[in-house]
Amino acid sequence: MERVIKPVSGYLAVVLFIASLIGGVWAILLHHEAVGAILMLAGIFIGKGIMIIHPNHSRVFTFFGKYVGTAKQNGLIWVNPLYGSQKISLRANNLNGQTLKVNDKMGNPIEIAAVIVWQVSDTYKAAFEVEGYQQYVQIQSEAAVRHLATSCPYDRMEDETAEVTLRDGGERVNEMLEQELNERLFAAGIVVKEARISHLAYAPEIAGAMLQRQQATAIVAARSKIVEGAVGMVEMALEQLSRKQIVTLDEERKAAMVSNLMVVLCGEKAATPVLNTGSLYQ
């Protein structure tokens, strides 16, 4: 458990350090070697406890292997010279994860990468609960991204019933990744402030086939909309012709008219008109 301590100001220690060294040198010059040696040793002892803590940094102190506390007070401080100390930054860090090749939930090989913003929140855990907290963050982040990729399909073409997909999940996918990272990194005293997918694509060996499949799906969807609209327009045309009594059509003429209108409305190219100077039955 982290315990924050407030060390004494280091300015007085600096004055005593300089005074001890000057006094030691002066005593030696006056042939008081013993006094001079004591003053010099006292100055060195005092000087060893002087240190500087920069903004958003901390020092974790131990005393003969026992955790003493963490100093987060910025500036010049003085602590027991016998304390061991470890520097730990409290600044936010960016981890630009490498691109990983994994299989999604449906077994398709994909490439995925994430950008993670993390920060030390508990210096005791970061210093003593794990071996190298920065490496721990990197390895656990990679594991979390892999687990996310295998838990969701790439898109709904593979699983139409999927609630969340990697491609369309957006903020929901980022929230899932952030939550899992916080659970994994809690043991190291790390809090994840933001996690986002930075790269997502099919693996090169299937990218071409998947692109063709996406294009085919888009074409089918577009054709479906075109046909739906064309049927509505044909229905409206027949209804208005009948209501306004512009022309009376039997079933065979209606079928011919429907066929012609569907060709005109659904064709990819503009229709070429053909004038019929005879009747429908000639």
Rank of each mutant, 00 (worst) to 15 (best):
T123W: 02
V15E: 09
E251C: 07
S85C: 08
E194G: 09
E183Q: 14
Q179W: 10
A149L: 06
Y281W: 12
A187L: 15
N74R: 12
Y154S: 01
L41H: 12
A230D: 06
A34K: 10
V102E: 03
M1E: 13
Y202R: 01
A256C: 08
D155N: 10
G75E: 01
Q73V: 14
A209F: 00
L166C: 04
R172P: 06
G189A: 08
V145Y: 03
K66A: 08
L261C: 07
N103I: 00
R184N: 10
L100T: 00
E129W: 09
P7C: 01
V231G: 01
L16I: 12
L100K: 00
H57W: 07
G75F: 02
K66C: 02
M157E: 13
G75L: 03
S58H: 00
A143G: 05
E163I: 10
A271R: 08
F63Y: 10
T217G: 09
G36T: 00
Y136F: 13
V220M: 10
Q138R: 12
A221Y: 00
Q179Y: 10
P55N: 02
K6C: 09
Y124F: 12
Q245M: 10
F64A: 09
Q98F: 08
G189K: 02
Y154C: 01
A113L: 09
V14E: 03
Y154W: 02
V227N: 02
F63L: 13
A143T: 04
I38V: 13
L185K: 02
E163R: 15
T217A: 14
K101F: 11
G208C: 05
L12A: 14
T161D: 15
T277F: 10
V274Y: 13
E131I: 09
L29H: 12
A256W: 12
Q212C: 03
D155Y: 04
I116T: 05
M106A: 15
M106N: 13
V60I: 06
Q140Y: 10
E252T: 15
L21R: 05
M1V: 10
P81Q: 03
W78M: 04
I226R: 00
A114Q: 03
W26P: 00
I18M: 14
N96K: 14
Q86T: 15
E235W: 05
S259G: 11
A207S: 14
Q135R: 09
L275H: 13
V4Q: 07
V274D: 13
V130K: 04
K254H: 05
L100C: 04
E33Q: 14
I38C: 08
K125T: 06
R167Y: 14
L82S: 11
A113R: 01
A222Q: 09
V258M: 05
G107M: 01
G132L: 02
G75S: 03
K87G: 12
V60M: 00
A13P: 04
M233W: 07
R3W: 12
I52W: 07
L29G: 10
R167K: 15
A255Y: 08
T123D: 06
M157Y: 12
G23K: 01
G10K: 01
K254M: 07
V264G: 00
E252Q: 12
V164P: 02
I206L: 02
E2Q: 15
L275Y: 09
A27N: 09
R156V: 06
S151K: 11
E2Y: 06
